[in-house]
Design a protein around this nucleic acid. Structure first.
Lengths: 340, 340
DNA sequence: GCCTACGATGGTAACGTTCCCATTTCAGAC
DNA sequence: GTCTGAAATGGGAACGTTACCATCGTAGGC
């Protein structure tokens, strides 16, 4: 192998093998069977000898096939996002696609910026866990023909598939479980829904079902950032108010579960006696005292489905189907925190 | 905005603004000041009106400047990797770079495959948290002139910078703390070091210092995958053996801490009485019973430094400096699990 | 007032592919 | 024996950008 060699090019391989560049292109472009046995052998030999690798940039330029899938995630440090990303990665690999991940840290401006960048790389599809409401850029992307999938959060006016949890059913499952376990006075803790459709859906369903089932309690929304005191106060208030039945807390997502668990420890609450349950399964849920009951999202499935959905859309590009909404059920993992 | 518009091209902007493509290229290529006020205005106007975005593929093809940084990570689900990635992302954004992340799931074959892919995208730099020993591909990449940074794990025969923890000092810090707290009989639990240099370094230092300090105990290495029983047995053995001083466990990384904590709970061990300490700070460390003492790695710094290092190397491409090794100290976060 | 030089601009040739359209060869149909 | 067509191959023109060199003014030095 040469000392400071530039990467070999298709043309060099062609020359070395004594064939035309078209043939080499075909060999690497997935039309291998159209070539004669002998030609395949010669190309393969030259290619390995020269260490040839197709230049994806050139490839992407010519055909518009960048073989790139973009992922825009609102909070990369959220285990949910990571798990979904892992699923997407596997799906991509199976399809020979690569993943470009951008984290927006929940900042709409950054989101727009990254969106423009991803568009610049001609991504063949885009999976978005939106922070803001970047419909302008998204619409441009969609109009340009890029398949879009919204992850977890729908965006009303964008023509895209949505993949995520069946939020209403998840809340029902949670309430069923809590009722079965004898809890009757509930506090639902969520981050402010703002634009996040799944937060809205969960919250709405909780409120609706609370009334429908004749349960006591309420929902409380607050930002988690550095709001530990406020959260503790809200929980203390709930615990001190008179109640006709055992109390339980339901956390809207993993971040909330973490914050609430911290608050409960600070308040010296015994889990189980006061129920605790969260959406999103986390590493440590079976480590904290009697174990925390959760609703696990099928994150890997969600990730794979997102990618599949993208590819499906690309296939039917000519005859665009109406947006699909795919909602997975959550899996109940019952632990000590909801056992009295 | 047009219904099914293809993205506008540089040429179209040029025509629309009545200038040459060179000028438009300059405008977007960071030579804006070389253009007259008037020309800048005209180009800006046309560009926004047409919704122009430079095609990164074409850009990457022509100049070799893909503006892409690759990251190869052995285990994307490891919080350490995520945190570092987050740091890298920020550094990249500040430089106008994008990040392409590939997860190898600790599979050397996958690692090679992804390496080839990243090379195909002409990444301008590569940060690698190696799973196997992919020196062949890496050397090719290095020879081709791509700056390389090894994350956490050095790879003896590869000419690249290394960024990570000061492992020896971290172990010393841990031992200092444990000794101060009165623990004298230690079990160091690690995953098998195999090719991972930092695991080797930590393990070696532990063994060496154990002897040097006249402490009792030993080190034990086992794969964590689904080896809960084996781990439990090893720990039980340690706890049952006669000891002249209070016992403590030291976990080589976050994964180990998780597994060991599980095992200790199964064995009904009281933390603090038996000491527990882990390298890597985790979300839940202050949630489990008296809180778990950890050594936090400065993950964000590590990520940023990795990217900076890459850029530095690219700048000095002509006069290649010898490989740099940058090792950060760990920060001790003392909690109840090492208080007797 | 001429030459130099620099600042502002434009034209053209790459970059490494893929795609479209030849061209060649040869088997089988009439 | 010619014709048709498919299979195997090759030639060139794109794709959208940047790099290099050329061209034009015009301001300053003598």
């Amino acid at each position: 192998m040469p000392e400071n060699a530039q990467r070999a090019t298709l043309l060099e391989v062609a020359r070395d093998a004594g064939v035309s560049k078209t043939s080499v292109s075909r060999y690497f472009g997935g039309e291998r069977e159209r070539l004669s046995r002998d030609m395949q052998r010669r190309i393969a030999a030259s290619a390995t000898r020269l260490g040839y690798r197709p230049n994806q940039m050139a490839r992407g330029l010519k055909g518009g096939r960048s073989r790139l899938i973009g992922m825009l995630v609102a909070d990369i440090r959220n285990p949910f996002s990571i798990a979904v990303m892992h699923g997407m990665e596997q799906a991509c690999r199976e399809q020979g696609l690569s993943l470009m991940v951008c984290n927006t840290d929940n900042d709409p401006a950054l989101e727009r910026e990254h969106l423009a960048l991803l568009a610049g790389y001609q991504v063949e599809g885009l999976v978005i866990n939106a922070a803001g409401r970047p419909s302008r850029e998204l619409e441009a992307l969609a109009a340009q023909g890029t398949p879009l999938v919204l992850l977890d959060r729908a965006l009303g006016d964008v023509d895209a598939d949505v993949v995520g949890l069946d939020n209403a059913r998840a809340i029902d499952t949670a309430l069923d479980h809590l009722q079965t376990q004898g809890y009757g006075e509930l506090l639902y803790v969520s981050e402010p829904p703002a634009e996040a459709s799944s937060r809205q859906a969960r919250l709405a369903r909780f409120r609706e079902q609370l009334a429908a089932r004749g349960l006591g309690g309420e929902a409380c929304c607050l930002a988690l950032d550095d709001n530990a005191p406020a959260l503790r106060r809200a929980i203390a208030e709930f615990l001190d108010a008179p109640a006709g039945a055992p109390r339980a807390l339901l956390c809207a997502n993993g971040n909330v579960t973490l914050a609430v668990t911290r608050a409960l420890q600070a308040l010296d609450v015994t889990l189980g006696e006061t129920g605790l349950m969260g959406i999103d399964e986390l590493d440590w849920c079976n480590l904290v005292a009697p174990g925390i009951t959760t609703l696990a999202q099928p994150t890997e499935d969600i990730g794979r489905t997102a990618v599949d959905s993208l590819l499906q859309r690309r296939r039917e590009r000519e005859r665009p189907a109406p947006p699909r909404h795919i909602h997975y059920p959550a899996e109940l993992i019952a632990r000590g925190s909801t056992r009295r």
